[in-house]
């Protein structure tokens, strides 16, 4: 049970930062509350009494998204369901809808924020790999001498380990900025015990752009989740694919190398197998999902053990 003395719903970033800066020890920020409420239950943190909860989802600056040159700034209040309902986000962030559809369920996705997912820093957070594949950066704001100061940290560096990030006392995450990957094919692979409402044992995000003939990898982005304490971008595999002709053999070979990325201590052999299959299936599906060009892949993309 989560018990608080006060529940604040600040209406501006300055107000939120002031409240957060002055909040007694133990106070917490709240976005969707989908991590923080289940955390305060028997078997996890148990009953938790905090002085204040500061809900940042009603701050206008944190709502919606803006498009800049080649980048999209997702306000901290952006929820996973947005990637299934907003056409601009779906087409420009083509791995996000596939991540979202496997994320919790329709109802939780209306509340669960990308920022909450990243700050919570679970090694099995589904949002981390696709955001990392999109070269995501998290924007952090704090008050300094009465004015709002901001800094940006790449998500690969932001998450330091399970539940650990570089966020500093007094800071509020205000946005996540990601690449627009318009024209890329995206995919997301996830394995858990059931379809909805399941935490990943492992997951993988892929983004692929083939050239106009559909024969050569122009760009490839691959990231893994659930197989180590920190976000994993598989740059080696990406380099080995970029500029090469698209063949099943090459995909298979490169996928094989992904097994060595697995740093988890538990179910290691299983995770190594899964990751190899995920990279292969992730690339194949991303190619197939690429608008206009993708269809070509199907000619030689029959998947084994699918």
């Amino acid at each position: 049970m989560l018990i608080c003395e006060n529940y604040h719903v600040p209406k501006s970033l300055e107000e939120a930062l002031r409240l957060w800066g002055d909040a007694p020890d133990g106070s917490r920020l709240v976005s969707g509350a989908t991590d923080i409420l289940p955390w305060a239950r028997e078997g996890r943190a148990g009953d938790v009494e905090v002085p204040a909860l500061i809900d940042v989802t009603k701050i206008p600056d944190l709502k919606g998204y803006t498009c800049q040159t080649g980048r999209i700034r997702l306000g901290a209040a952006t929820v996973y369901q947005d990637f299934l309902t907003d056409r601009t986000l779906m087409t420009n962030l083509p791995c996000m809808p596939y991540c979202a559809i496997w994320f919790a369920d329709d109802q939780i996705r209306e509340q669960a924020t990308v920022v909450g997912n990243l700050v919570n820093a679970s090694p099995v957070a589904d949002g981390t790999p696709p955001v990392v594949a999109l070269n995501g950066e998290i924007e952090l704001a704090r008050l300094s001498g009465g004015s709002v100061q901001r800094r940006s940290v790449p998500v690969v560096d932001f998450i330091e380990g399970p539940g650990r990030t570089v966020i500093q006392p007094g800071e509020i995450a205000t946005a996540v900025t990601v690449d627009s990957a318009y024209g890329y094919g995206g995919s997301f692979q996830k394995v858990g015990q059931r379809r909805s409402l399941v935490i990943s044992v492992a997951c993988c995000a892929a983004l692929v752009r083939a050239d106009s003939t559909g024969a050569v990898f122009e760009d490839v982005r691959l990231a893994l989740g659930g197989v180590g304490p920190r976000p994993i971008r598989i740059r080696d595999a990406e380099r080995r694919l970029k500029g090469e002709r698209i063949t099943r053999d090459l995909i298979k070979q490169v996928a094989q190398t992904a097994a060595d990325e697995v740093g988890s201590r538990s179910r290691k052999d299983y995770r190594r197998d899964v990751v190899v299959n995920f990279v292969r299936a992730g690339l194949e599906e991303a190619l197939a999902n690429q608008p206009e060009i993708g269809a070509k892949f199907k000619n030689f993309g029959e998947t084994e053990n699918a």
């Binding site: 529940y7 709240v30 509350a33 989908t34 409420l37 809900d55 369901q81 109802q107 939780i108 509340q111």
Partner: peptide, 13 residues
């Protein structure tokens, strides 16, 4: 208008 799980939503929200 959006369906949510009310056990995960603080009433103040």
């Amino acid at each position: 208008g959006k369906l949510v799980k009310s056990c995960l939503m603080p009433a103040a929200k």
